[in-house]
Design a protein around this nucleic acid. Structure first.
Lengths: 223, 223
DNA sequence: ATAGCCTTTGTCCAAACGGTCAAAAATTCG
DNA sequence: CGAATTTTTGACCGTTTGGACAAAGGCTAT
């Protein structure tokens, strides 16, 4: 009986490392546009310039590729929030978080869309991770924000909805990129788009839309 | 002589009206979860409790169903922004817009996800509508907001990015519902979720996070 | 060089897919 | 009623899909 080696714990060869990366890169491109069900192995193989059986030599099932992508993504995804430091200046920390998330939307739009696709479809593959890891991280950071508010360094507000708002506004520039470009039009569209967004969001989250009533007239200084 | 539009060939029968609605309702459920490519006619027929050939008697192609849904949606979708009135009080108008959008996220989450799916996939079917109708509506309302800012009724800010921020934050509660629920957990989750969101967003958009420095309230002076 | 493993490919398959069609069943209408 | 029309269905078709497999082609260490 010919034994098919169980690809379990052997170290990866150079070719294996290279080709797995090529496949994951191609799969990110495809999955992020069409979602899991809307993507085909043929599309991915095509994108990776590889034959389908060859691709299936590296990943036995379509789902394995998707699973690997999603799991890698989550680490990266939580990092910016992890970085928010309870010892820092609240305004600086929140501004930094907004900036980091916006940079991720700019530099990793496919990852953002991959994630959005998964959530839109009901997060069938990562629901438990959301309920455990993500929830506990948000709980932790919500407590930090609440403490800041109790020290009256920030206005009182629901910290969880604040986090949602930061997620929503920043990821919007990756996930709804087509719409953003369409609305801004060829004139206003361009690389400066993210700079404008950053300026707007920082101002918005910190000061809101109401005119200031302190009679000082200057923009708010942050320590 | 002008001819009657092709459309008006025959009036729909009662059964046609009923079944077309049943199909569209089922298709909304399916498309909003899986996107166009990820959905199958069988799924939709199943959801509508109808045989596939029967369904195809009412809509010749899968794309026709999707197209009908998307076109119906867009009218509803633009309405809340249309309602924003340049004669009204800016704060009241913006607050009203946020509230209306949030109500839509609460009452029509499937429509929101259908739209999100379409945009995520690059808006292949509605790109031109975004560039024309949506863009011109946003341009119009951006001008209104700009005027408010010039009258110093609002702080100066990019009106288009403000509109994006309102879209993003409100639609988030429909599109990322699974994530929101997971993070809030069984305790904080519930119908009150949207009420909390509304309170947070209104406060956030209008006042921001910084403590007030107008010396009128009980909060401490900084500097 | 050559044995032994790693990699690639052509071929194949069963299921799922979008869609057709003719005929049966139900409805409408004179 | 019965005829005309509309609605429903089972059977079917060509294509696409995820995946299996054995055989062929490379690579590398001895």
């Amino acid at each position: 009986m010919a034994m098919k080696a169980v690809r379990a714990r052997k170290p990866l060869t150079r070719i294996q490392r290279e080709n797995r990366e090529r496949i994951l890169e191609a799969a990110l491109e495809v999955f992020s546009r069409h979602g899991f069900r809307g993507s085909t192995i043929d599309q991915i193989a095509d994108e990776a310039a590889m034959s389908k059986p060859n691709l299936l030599y590296y990943f036995r099932r379509k789902e394995d590729i998707h699973s690997e992508l999603i799991h890698r993504l989550l680490e990266t995804w939580l990092a910016p929030l992890e970085e928010m430091n309870s010892d820092g200046d609240p305004v600086r920390e929140i501004r930094g978080y907004i900036r980091r998330k916006l940079e991720m939307a700019r530099d990793f739009p496919r990852e953002s869309r991959l994630f959005a696709n998964e959530i839109l479809q009901g997060a069938p593959r990562i629901k438990s991770m959301l309920e455990e890891e993500l929830k506990s991280l948000v709980d932790k950071k919500a407590a930090v924000i609440t403490a800041w508010m109790e020290q009256e360094k920030l206005r009182p507000a629901d910290p969880r909805h604040l986090i949602f708002a930061i997620w929503a506004t920043t990821q919007h520039y990756a996930d709804f990129d087509v719409q953003v470009r369409a609305v801004l039009g060829p004139g206003r569209d361009g690389p400066g788009r993210f700079e404008d967004a950053a300026l707007f969001l920082e101002e918005m989250f910190l000061n809101g839309l109401l005119p200031r009533r302190d009679g000082l007239g200057a923009e708010p200084q942050v320590q």
